[in-house]
Amino acid sequence: MSIDAPTRRAGTMPARRQSGLPDWSLGLFGLVAFAGVLELLPRTGVISERYFPPFSAMVGALVEAMGTDTFWSATGETLQAWGIGLAIALVAGVGLGLLIGSVPILQRLTASTVEFLRPVPSVALIPLAVLVFGITNIRSTLLLIVYAAFWQVLIQAIYGVQDVDPVARETARSYQLGRWARLRHLVWPTALPYVMTGVRLGAAVALILAVTAGIVGIGQGLGWLIVRAQSGNDVPTIYGIVLFTGLLGVVVNLLARALERRALAWHSSVRADLGG
């Protein structure tokens, strides 16, 4: 057993030079500068406007698109598929994860299968989805989303259950806590932060697949809007919707992180999450 490095004392901290500006203002400056570069590159002719319209034109096209019903029905479809798919993956992943994690023999039996199926890219299922459900059925999109997000949640849930302190487990047993009570008061609180990490990773992957479906011709979500704009050679709209999907991604990330932080707040130790 090695001794951890003691917490550092105030006196040992090197003087950090403060730039005088709060962090958010630097970040804002970065965003503005970035938008400025996007505006100037085509305007000065460094990149042809035919491929790369100025930032203002991208935003203009997005605003224009936002005035149409098609845009909102596409957004709605993408978000609906995302939400339902994520929910299914969550229920299935957490349920199976808790079960597999709590029964050692199940875990040993399934480990190799999980390791084999997890890295199978969900996009490999695209042709199958199209054949079985067709390109207009939301189930096609759902199949991709669920397959991609499920493994993220499942793996984290299994990790979470395994992290239950053996001493606490013995204590709970000696107090004659039933299986259900143990699950509720011991296993679930320990596993929750892990599950939340799974939710965050799964939410991001689910959004990727929800948008991807449209790009390969499944459904009429945001991906479909981009492809439509491309076949109409409406270049600013392509970029406008790409910007929009980025904003959507940012919102999803922020929500998932906020949720995760709340779950972690009442968990004693925040574990180093190295992704997964």
Binding site: S19, D23, L26, G27, L28, F29, G30, L31, A33, F34, Y51, F52, L207, I208, A210, V211, T212, I215, L222, G223, I226, V227, Q230, V235, I238, Y239, I241, V242, T245, G246, L247, L248, G249, V250, V252, N253
Partner: peptide
């Protein structure tokens, strides 16, 4: 540090873009 603070929101934005939407864009070029 300063460069990091400036670029952080831009990078977070790029990370949040679902990568496959880059395909139609890149194929333009």
């Amino acid at each position: 540090r300063t460069l990091r603070r400036i670029t952080e929101p831009v990078l977070e934005f790029f990370r949040a873009i679902p990568p496959p939407v880059l395909i139609p864009v890149l194929f333009l070029f």
